[in-house]
Design a protein around this nucleic acid. Sequence first.
DNA 1: TTTTGAGTTGTTCGA
DNA 2: GTCGAACAACTCAAA
Length: 478
Amino acid sequence: MKGETALWWIRRDVRLRDNQALRGALAHASTVIPVFILDPGILRSRYHVRAERRKAFLFGGLRLLDEALRQRGSRLIVREGAAATALPILAQETKASAVFAEEDYSPAARGRDGEIARQGVNLQLAPGVSVRHPDEVRKADGGPYTVFTPFRRAWLALPLPSEGDLLPVPRSLPAVPGGLKSVALPQLPLPEEFPPGEAEARRRLVRFASGGKAPIYEYGESRNRLDWEGTSVLSPYLRFGMVSPREAVVRALQAMAEAPGPAARASAELWLGELIWREFYLAILYHFPSVLKTAFNPALREIPWRTAPQDLEAWRDGRTGYPVVDAAMRQLRGIGWMHNRGRMIAASFLVKDLLIDWTQGEQYFMDQLVDGDPAANNGGWQWTAGVGTDAAPYFRIFNPVLQGQKFDPEGGYIRRFVPELGRVPDRYIHEPWRMSGAEQEAAGCLIGRDYPAPIVDRARVRDRTLAAYRRSQERARR
DNA sequence: TTTTGAGTTGTTCGA
DNA sequence: GTCGAACAACTCAAA
């Protein structure tokens, strides 16, 4: 309405395109003030982690968003402090009659939004973090799904978004009143492999999913290869809404419709499935917020984990002596991102081989990942640990040697991140400890000096892990 | 209410 | 080298 002022509160929707919170604000008021609240607790809510990379990525994205806003006659206002304090102050100061934001489902976000609403702020939540609200996808009896496949079926049965649903970038935006204080965002070193921003996000989405030869059509085969770039690497951008999840879904559906053949179509559908996994874990966190504290499966809450600080440290540092595990962990620390296959292998090793509490791994991943999202990260860890929503049998224990041979056959991934194995022959690259003394010498890699010997004997791992899980089930039965 | 089919991503063993 | 079965039994979803 004319004369009204609204705040567009940016949280994890750092974009102008297809932004329903922004559209809501523009429809409601003639003056719209884009605001970001620099909360000291940001991005770590219940995790005791620093998350430096995510902050850098987010702040970089906000700077670019500010540029785009200025090109359209607006600008970004940044305020410091707890959102529950800073936002009502700003709303009062600007006489804003409403605050528009994208609804976020984490317990921390919901707690924060509830508190703000209780303070009398007219907080209008718009969809956008997920394509479907967790309440939309329900079983016939009204309850939420806890198994992925039926969830996906029900998700796909609802009306699908199409090109016409995507909201365009507003060509111009109302000016922000002068005199409003705004603090500078901290300058942090940007993650090299992930230039932030909406433009980069779109480039990646288009490169991955558009055109007859798009990688999305190879996804079925290439997504598991650690040594190929077969995935979209969109996760950090989806995490902060630099691309709209709805647009990603529309591109996937388009790719399916235009697929050059049935295999290509199946590949594109597989990628769409990954987007639905994202929705699934967002919904799980929404309906079962306790998963951030404890295993979803009550029978597996009493596993007698090992306390082994040195093993945990070796895992974090990528010094386990299992090349594919170490490569994955060094990729994580090196670039703040890990190939999904690597995440499964590394996570399985911590939980099943070292028998260390999965929440330790969850925590470390949240510290390092530029795409770290509580819902997806927690879901992934619970899945790997076999304590989560899906009925995966817990005796499924990844063998890092086999996984390496299958998904990094020539060791290209390993050599990239574990340079001390660079000259180890292909036939030993997944089991360097099997080299003779002379072979180690020739490869310039002495086991125990240049690269560690395996920190666990895998032959014993299986029994130890199965026994620990069984123990938890027995305790739960009583 | 009962029944039935199914469940992302694996490994190992023996034929 | 390849293939199928066993792993161990459970819960969920839907008819």
